[in-house]
Design a protein around this nucleic acid. Structure first.
Length: 486
RNA sequence: CGGGACGUAGCUCAGCUUGGUAGAGCGCUGCGUUUGGGACGCAGAAGUCGCAGGUUCAAAUCCUGUCGUCCCGACCA
C-alpha cells in the first residue's frame, strides 16, 4: 500500500499499521491495550481496568462540569413498564426496533413486559410528574450515570455495543427559553470536554429532522471526524419541548395561576467518546492518550545493570516523590526495558521516565514523550533530577496541546466547501471528510444525498453560506456538515 | 436482516484440496546469563480443532445445522 514504509513497523508486532486498515487497527488496539474484552454475550464487551480508567477520567471531567452548572446526580430503574413506554408515540416508534424486553420473572411470565431502558426519558418523566406541582419546583436539574441497552445489528467496541455506559441529563423547566438555554449550555460542556480534555475537535450544530432524537423538537450534536473520513456523533443535547411533559403529565401551576406543561431536555455522552479518542490520537505504536484523559500520566522504567539496585532504588524514591502530583506508575516488572517501552507505548501513556545508572551518575534521568514518533528530535530529553516534576508538568501540557493541534489540523484539512454539485458528490462518495455546504433542509434532499453517496447531514447551523442548496439547487436555508457516519 | 469471509494453544497463523487421531512463531513456567527500544541458552507446560448432528473402520479435514467474529450493504443515539 505504502511502499515508503518497511514491511513491519519495527517497534510493533502486536497491531497492524493504522493506515493499512483502520478497523483492524482499532480493534487490535482496543484488545491489546487491554481496554476491553469480548464477552460471551454477543455485542457486549467487558470494560477492563485500563479502559475503565479512561471512562473514570471522562466521568470525573463531565461530572465536575455538571455539578458546576447546578445539576445533581440521581439513579432511576433499569426496567420500564411497556405501558409507560407507549405513551409518547414518536419516542416508542423510534426506539421499538432496538428495545430488549424482560418477559419473565423467576418462573412466572410477566403480566406486562418490561423494557430494558434504551434511554430514560420515560421513567424519569414519570417521576418528574410526581415531583413537580408548582413553578417553584422548577427547574429540576438531574443527571444519571447509567448503563443502557439498544439491540443493535452490528457492534464494535465503544462505538456501538448492545449495552453501553453513559450519562443522561434530564431537566424540566418553566419556560421554553430556559430549556433552550439548558440544551445549549450542555452542548457547550460537551464541546469543551471533547476538545479541551479528550483533545478531539468537534463541530456543533443542530440535527436535521431525519437525524433528530425520537420525540424531540430539536436535537443538537457535536460531531468529530475519524481518520477514515467518517464522522462520529460524540454527544447530543435535546430540546424535548412539551412533548414528554404532555405524555407523562409533567404539569405545574404557573405564576399566572394556570396549569402548564413543563419544558424538558435531555442530553447524553457515552463511552463512545473513548472510541473517538482511540481513533483520532492513536498511531502505529498503539494508543496515544491525552494527559488529561490518561489513567497513567507517567511511567517510570528503571534500567537494571548487573546486581546493582542503584537505578531501581532511585526509581522507588522518585515514584514516591511524584505520586502526590501525578498519576504515576513504577514499572518494576522483571522484564527487559524494551518490552516495557513497547508495552506502555501501546497503552498510550504520555510520558516515560527512564532511569539508568549512566544518567544518574550525571544527576539526570531521561524523559520520553509518547506523542512524538520514534527517533524524532525532542522525543527524549535528559532532565536534571531536581527539575523532573516541573518538566513533567510542562511536557504534559505540551502533549495535551500537541495532540489536540494534530487532530484539529486533520479536521481542518478534511473539511471542504465543495464548489459544485459534482465535487460534492465525489467527495461524499470518497469519504473525503466533512463537507460544508449550503443546504435546503429538506428530508427528500437528504434522502437523495444518502441514496447517491451514503453520506448524511451530520449537523446544521445558520446562516447558510450560499444562496442555493449544493445538493439539489433549491433555496438554501442552513449550512450543513455532510459526511458518512459511524 | 441480505451478500461475502473466517473460527485450530494466551496471540498470529499453518495443516483441510487428496480423511489416518495436531504443528510453527511469539507469549507462558523453571533455572542461568542478561537488561539504555520487543535478549539468549537449557528444560518444560499448554489445544474437547467454536458447538451439535451426519457420512465413514476412521473427521481439524467431507456434509448439514447452529453460535460467534470480521468486511460490504440495510437499519440505527
Amino acid at each position: 500500500m505504502d511502499d515508503q514504509l518497511p514491511e513491519k513497523t519495527p517497534f510493533v508486532k502486536e497491531i497492524p499499521r493504522k493506515a493499512d486498515d483502520l478497523s483492524e487497527w482499532y480493534q487490535a488496539v482496543c484488545y491489546k491495550a487491554e481496554l476491553v474484552s469480548l464477552s460471551p454475550v454477543r455485542g457486549c464487551v467487558v470494560l477492563r481496568p485500563y479502559g475503565y480508567g479512561l471512562w473514570e477520567r471522562l466521568q470525573s471531567e463531565l461530572d465536575a462540569r455538571f455539578k458546576a452548572t447546578g445539576h445533581e446526580n440521581a439513579y432511576f430503574p433499569l426496567l420500564i413498564p411497556e405501558s409507560l413506554l407507549m405513551r409518547e408515540a414518536e419516542h416508542v416508534e423510534g426506539f421499538a426496533p432496538e428495545v430488549a424486553w424482560v418477559t419473565q420473572g423467576g418462573n412466572e411470565k410477566l403480566a406486562e413486559r418490561l423494557a430494558i431502558r434504551p434511554t430514560s426519558e420515560v421513567i424519569i418523566g414519570t417521576m418528574y410528574a410526581e415531583w413537580v406541582q408548582s413553578y417553584r419546583d422548577l427547574p429540576i436539574l438531574i443527571n444519571q450515570w447509567a448503563n443502557v441497552m439498544r439491540w443493535e445489528k452490528r457492534t464494535r467496541p465503544f462505538l456501538r455495543t448492545l449495552e453501553f455506559l453513559w450519562q443522561e441529563g434530564h431537566t424540566a423547566h418553566e419556560t421554553q427559553a430556559e430549556a433552550a438555554a439548558e440544551v445549549a449550555q450542555m452542548l457547550e460542556v460537551y464541546k469543551e470536554v471533547a476538545e479541551d480534555i479528550v483533545g478531539v475537535p468537534v463541530y456543533k450544530g443542530e440535527k436535521s429532522v431525519s437525524e433528530r432524537f425520537a420525540g424531540a423538537d430539536h436535537t443538537y450534536s457535536i460531531e468529530a471526524l475519524m481518520p477514515d473520513g467518517k464522522a462520529l456523533q460524540a454527544g447530543t443535547s435535546h430540546e424535548l419541548g412539551q412533548n414528554f411533559a404532555r405524555a407523562y403529565d409533567i404539569t405545574f401551576a404557573g405564576r399566572d395561576q394556570t396549569q402548564q406543561h413543563a419544558w424538558t431536555t435531555s442530553w447524553g455522552m457515552s463511552w463512545r467518546m473513548l472510541g473517538a479518542l482511540i481513533m483520532v490520537h492513536g498511531d502505529d505504536q498503539g494508543l496515544r492518550i491525552p494527559p488529561k484523559m490518561a489513567p497513567v500520566e507517567v511511567v517510570i522504567v528503571p534500567i537494571a545493570r548487573g546486581d546493582s539496585t542503584v537505578a531501581s532504588d532511585f526509581a522507588k524514591v522518585l515514584h514516591a516523590q511524584l505520586r502526590p502530583q501525578f498519576r504515576v506508575k513504577l514499572d518494576d516488572r522483571d522484564l527487559r526495558p524494551g518490552n516495557k517501552y513497547a508495552d506502555w507505548d501501546l497503552r498510550g501513556v504520555p510520558l516515560r521516565i527512564v532511569i539508568g545508572e549512566r544518567d544518574l551518575a550525571e544527576g539526570k534521568v531521561t524523559v520520553v514523550r509518547r506523542d512524538f514518533p520514534p527517533k524524532t528530535a525532542g522525543r527524549e530529553v535528559a532532565v536534571a533530577i531536581g527539575d523532573v516534576a516541573a518538566t513533567l508538568r510542562e511536557l504534559l501540557v505540551d502533549i495535551q496541546a500537541n495532540l489536540y493541534a494534530q487532530a484539529r489540523t486533520f479536521l481542518h484539512d478534511h473539511t471542504f466547501a465543495p464548489a459544485t454539485r459534482e465535487e460534492f458528490v465525489a467527495k461524499a462518495k470518497g469519504r473525503a471528510g466533512m463537507l460544508d455546504i449550503p443546504w435546503c433542509d429538506r428530508a427528500e434532499c437528504e434522502a437523495a444525498i444518502k441514496e447517491q453517496t451514503s453520506a448524511t447531514t451530520r449537523n446544521l447551523r445558520t446562516p447558510a453560506l450560499g444562496p442555493v442548496c449544493l445538493a439539489c439547487g433549491e433555496p438554501a436555508r442552513v449550512q450543513a456538515y455532510v459526511a458518512q457516519s459511524y
